[in-house]
Every structure is written in C-alpha cells, then in structure tokens.
C-alpha cells in the first residue's frame, strides 16, 4: 500500500507541473486552433535562462521564474508576430503550415541551444536538490513539492487573470468562438500575439521549476512537447480546467505505469490513453464535465 501511495504522490506532484505546461499549450491551441510543436523547446530555452542565471549570477531557480517568464513572454510575442501571424495570409494547399512552422522553430531553438551550450548535460545543484521529507511513511521530494505549490499558485493567478480582467475575457472569448469574438470587437491579431506570449511564459515557469530536478540538455524539449499536446487533447482543446485534469491524469498514469507495468512502459501509458481519448472521447475530458 505504501508503494501505491508513493506512486500516487509522485504522479500528482509531476502532474502539477504537467498541468502548467498543458495550460500554456491549451491557450495557444484554443485561440490559434493549432498545435504548438515548439512548446517543450520553449521550456528548454527557459531552463537554459534559469541555468545561466544560477551559474553566473547565483540566482535561485525559483527567483529566476521572474526572469525567465518575461523573457519567454517576449520570445513568444516575437514568434507569433513575425513567424506565425504572417502565415494567416499565405494561400497554401497544406492548412497545417503553421504547425510545420512551429516544428521549424523547435529545431532552430534546440540547435541554437546546442550551438551555445553543446550537448553536455547541465544541472543546477541547489541545497534542496535530492532532498526528501517524510509524511506518513511516504517520501516527498522537496524540490518537487515546492514546484507543485508554485504551479498551484500560478494556476490560481492565471484563472484570476482569465476570469477577472478584460484581456483575459477577450482571450477566453477568442478561444471559444473566434468569429464571434471578432464581431464583438476583439482585436484577434493582438489577442493571438498576447496568448502565444502567455503560453510561452507559462511553460517557462514550468522550466524554472523543473530545473532543480531535471538534467538539462538541448534535446530535453521534445518529450515535453509530446506531453504538452497529450495533456491538451486529454483535457480538451482550449480548456484550462481540462488541462489541469489532463496534466494530473498524465502524471498519475505515467507514475502508475512505471510502478506496475515497468519503468520503460511509462511513456507508452500516456500515449495509449491519449489515443483512446482521441478516438472515443474527442473533445477530451472537457466533454464529460462541460466546463
């Protein structure tokens, strides 16, 4: 039974971070209607920013949050403004060329990181790295727990923003019905730019929170891109509440899969759930709850 709860706790803690990653993706997906295959790579960039801040300025990774998030916000804004929005006017046979653009961006970000930092594995070893505390016989990883609490806080802030501010309402409106939002006077071009920036900033926060736990190398983005869109489909495109459930579901499923099926099957568990949802529950968990 201890093993079960240990597995559950590990799954929930990482699920909280996954939720953060998924929320960024789902905002972009909802507003733009595309999948952002550079999502994990944006996180990788944030991780390198955090790494540099720690190595050269001895800035604690949790404080770097306030550096990495604005940096990535502006990177996201630039990407949307100069690379993705221009594609809206281009007539092509392939409607998914914005998706392909994100692939190109992903490759460029990864390779720039490799160019600057090489493929060497980096890590930020803080005083709390690898520390554990016990609660009722279950071990809690300190860094993971702190990251989880940050994730919860950020989620609350995001919800306040989306529900209570004009800008947030415009984003939600655009995500739900783009045409209607434009008719209501929403500047959709500006909204897409801000949304991509916001999505990038959210995934940046996940990067800063994960750095005391993960090793960092240029290719770390790719598995997270896959996770991000699994979460988004699980939760239902454009649904932030769905992304939270999607993130937690994926985290727990991976953790359970690792313990009860085998550690090497962990990734497969997530993807199979994803395919099942895609086939039998298109629209994701959102459909069940009608949130």
């Amino acid at each position: 039974m201890t093993v079960f709860f240990q597995t559950l706790v590990s799954g929930i803690l990482i699920g909280g971070i996954y939720a953060l990653i998924g929320m960024g993706m789902t905002l972009i997906m909802g507003v733009m209607g595309i999948i952002n295959l550079a999502h994990g790579q944006l996180m990788m960039v944030a991780m390198y920013i955090t790494f540099v801040a720690y190595t050269f300025f001895h800035l604690d990774p949790y404080l770097s949050l306030f550096v990495a998030m604005p940096c990535l916000f502006f990177l996201g804004v630039a990407i949307q403004k100069f690379l993705l929005n221009p594609l809206m006017e281009v007539e092509t046979i392939i409607p998914q060329n914005q998706v392909l653009m994100t692939v190109g961006i992903a490759i460029v970000l990864t390779e720039i990181a490799r160019f600057i930092f090489s493929s060497t594995y980096r890590s930020v070893t803080t005083s709390y790295t690898g520390k554990v505390f016990f609660l009722g016989g279950i071990s809690f990883n300190v860094a993971m727990t702190v990251a989880f609490l940050f994730a919860v806080t950020l989620t609350i802030v995001l919800f306040w923003f989306l529900l209570k501010t004009d800008l947030g309402r415009s984003i939600r409106a655009t995500a739900q019905d783009k045409e209607a939002a434009i008719l209501m006077g929403v500047n959709s071009r500006r909204i897409t730019i801000i949304t991509y920036g916001l999505g990038a900033a959210l995934v940046a926060s996940a990067g800063s929170l994960l750095i005391p736990i993960f090793y960092l190398f240029p290719d770390i983005g790719r598995p997270f891109t896959t996770k991000a869109f699994v979460i988004t489909i699980l939760g239902g495109m454009g649904s932030t509440v769905g992304a939270i459930f999607g993130g937690l579901t994926l985290g727990i499923a991976e953790s359970m899969g690792a313990t009860y099926i085998g550690m090497s099957y962990k990734e497969m568990v997530g993807l199979i759930i994803f395919l099942l949802v895609l086939i039998f529950l298109p629209g994701g968990l959102k459909r069940l709850t009608k949130v």
């Binding site: 690379l83 221009p86 594609l87 281009v90 007539e91 092509t92 046979i93 392939i94 060329n97 392909l100 653009m101 692939v103 190109g104 961006i105 992903a106 490759i107 460029v108 990864t110 390779e111 720039i112 490799r114 160019f115």
Partner: peptide, 20 residues
C-alpha cells in the same frame, strides 16, 4: 556542427516565403 540549425532555418524560410 550547425547543419541542423540550417535545416530548421530553411524550414522557416520556406514556409514563410515559398509555402507552395
């Protein structure tokens, strides 16, 4: 060492300017 970077830049260039 940066040939993969060139590959990525080419993708972006082509989609932006030579979408067909």
């Amino acid at each position: 060492q940066s040939h993969a970077l060139v590959f990525g830049l080419m993708v972006i260039f082509v989609i932006l300017y030579l979408a067909n």
